[in-house]
Design a protein around this nucleic acid. Structure first.
Lengths: 207, 207, 207, 207
DNA sequence: AATGAATGAGGCTTCATTCAT
DNA sequence: TATGAATGAAGCCTCATTCAT
């Protein structure tokens, strides 16, 4: 949908992929451009030719353009979920958890970078918010309205509902896959069901 | 393993305080020992005399010994909440939110360090878990049982309940005070009430 | 040694002109080939195709071949002065000042390069001397003899006289236009007249 | 006369001396900090510890403080000349030429640096002017007035006279020792006498 | 116990130059 | 002929750490 094609060379892609991996693993400040160059089988000079500076590389990784590389995927598979018009809100939540879980597992490195580096690079925050906001928020807003109209969702303001759902899902996923990946967790189905149940009874009005 | 009272000199305290601040603000890898020395009005040599290495300084900051400095305070004010035997579970939650909020605001720097650096320093994770686990978990477990017996809490397993409560409270507080401190939030009372309400209706069994 | 007309392509001219400008402004060592390429709207490869190396480009700029591009102009307008047979030596000096001033102003960049880089590139010195010497010295020698015969010039040896005149004129012009272009100078006419007068009479008053 | 003692360590002095030499020989941009470190038997880190940056080192070399190291010498031996109250102005000029020649030969490197780098570092110009102006100009002004009153100097304005004398002396010395040190020059005495004579009488013979 | 000069390894970045297209 | 991606050597600079005082 974006007109100006990125046209990244093979080396550029190798650099971005390697850097993404390493930044995620060791942090931005803890990764040297030399290491990136080696692992990407590229000369250090090439990195700077393309990305101007180490920070430039970081920004490229999380830049809208790069995100757009993921965006189609993100949108498409989010749409798959959102467009299904589940009979019950709970089924939507269940589907979203699976969907988000898959996405996060696939994009763990970039998300790790975002989470770790946002506090140190104010520019990142803006990109993150813009990206999340623009592409995802609206759609979700519509869905929520749909279930509110159906009487399956409390009439709280949307921001709060989104935050509640998001924080329930994200805090579980982040804890499980980012912060404490080695801890012993119950099976995914059971964890999923718990979240659903809690969200259900908390957000669905009693009559 | 912790020997008797740690007797820190003024310089050592100055170093720890300065380093805590700077690590929190710019990250461990992003802070230089030189900067710490300057801001603490201490020579670089002194830092290494006392803490062996930069990592040693980090470990000292988050070490049980240092944490013990905070521990009495932590425990005491957590106990203040937990020992009150509120009539209703909701009141406990409300009190805990206020309590945690105060603690986090007071100890933001160290928490920031923990959150940021845990992924890069495996040793930290152990210290963190041991510290949090040992001192707090048990107590909370008792409390939960108390309210379960009173019929005010679902009969889920404790781990899940704790995670649910903790993630509700923490994800709100972390988001509000650590990740997005500048965003426009509703007033604290309203936010608190929402969390309480959601937790309440989600966790309290319907009859 | 100079073969027939040098046929420079448009790109080559663009490169030479841009490089001349930049070398003059920032020095040879302070200018990158990349910058030259950009400002000349040419790829870096092209520069090396044509000039072999960065040094080759410098040599091309100050080479006899390039200088010959200016030589006709130089000679012509110097001849204009020298062929006029002024009644008085002072008038010749006055005319030469104006003439040199114009030339220097028009060719400031290349002169700057010569002045700045001669100490670091021995080859340059030879080119410079050969070029200046061959084309100009002889002519001036004749002129001096002419005014000596007329009794308007002391009977010192020519080398000294040339050096005296040249240094008077050049040190003024270099100081005024190269070294301290922003300083506050008197009007050009007044400065010119002072040089003429001092050359004529010296500093000791005759009574 | 300056109160705050510089207190340069041995290494600092070694760095400054080596850098002065190398900058003079190969230019600022043409000299690497690595080379300076090696020749000064010092680690590269030490250079930056003391001088912050390569430019900082350049500024230190030509800074007032460093110049003050030379200033006593400069002033003292200039005073030797200026305080002698020569019977004739010509004798003063003669003495000044010898004196300046000695100074320049002794400080050739620093002067070379100044001459070469001033066009590229505007800050240098200010330091140069301030330094020359403050310490030397006034004194010379007095001397000139002395000889004007004695009727041995034309009644031109002082600035012009100073410039004339300075440019005569400097252009000879710079040409002889800086720009074209290898050329074949007449003996020093003869050259000196010529300058004196020209300054005295000019180029036009009186009959 | 404290200092701060000194270090050398390594970090980020620039550069002249080459080469496949 | 022209391009510009790619290179690797070298440049400037920072850093954690050591050591004589």
């Amino acid at each position: 949908m974006t007109n100006n094609e990125p046209k990244l060379t093979k080396k550029q892609i190798a650099i971005i992929e390697t850097a993404t991996e390493l930044f995620a693993e060791k942090g931005y400040a803890g990764t040297s451009t030399n290491e990136i160059a080696h692992k990407a089988s590229v000369s250090e000079g090439t990195i700077f030719k393309h990305f101007k500076s180490k920070k430039g590389l970081l920004m490229a990784i999380v830049s809208p353009m790069t995100m757009k590389l993921f965006a189609p995927m993100i949108k498409k598979d989010l749409d798959k979920v959102l467009d299904q018009e589940f009979e019950y809100f709970q089924d939507l939540v269940r589907a979203m958890i699976d969907n988000r879980k898959a996405f996060i597992q696939n994009n763990l490195p970039m998300l790790r970078i975002l989470i770790q580096e946002i506090p140190f690079h104010p520019e990142l925050k803006e990109q993150f918010i813009e990206y999340i906001g623009k592409d995802i928020f609206e759609k979700i807003g519509q869905i929520i309205k749909y279930y509110q109209d159906k009487g399956q969702l409390v009439e709280m303001d949307q921001k709060t509902i989104i935050r509640t759902i998001a924080s329930s899902i994200l805090s579980y996923i982040v804890a499980r896959y980012v912060l404490l990946p080695e801890a012993d967790w119950d099976s995914e189905e059971i964890e999923t069901e718990r979240i659903v149940q809690i969200l259900e009874n908390g957000l669905v009005p009693k009559n």
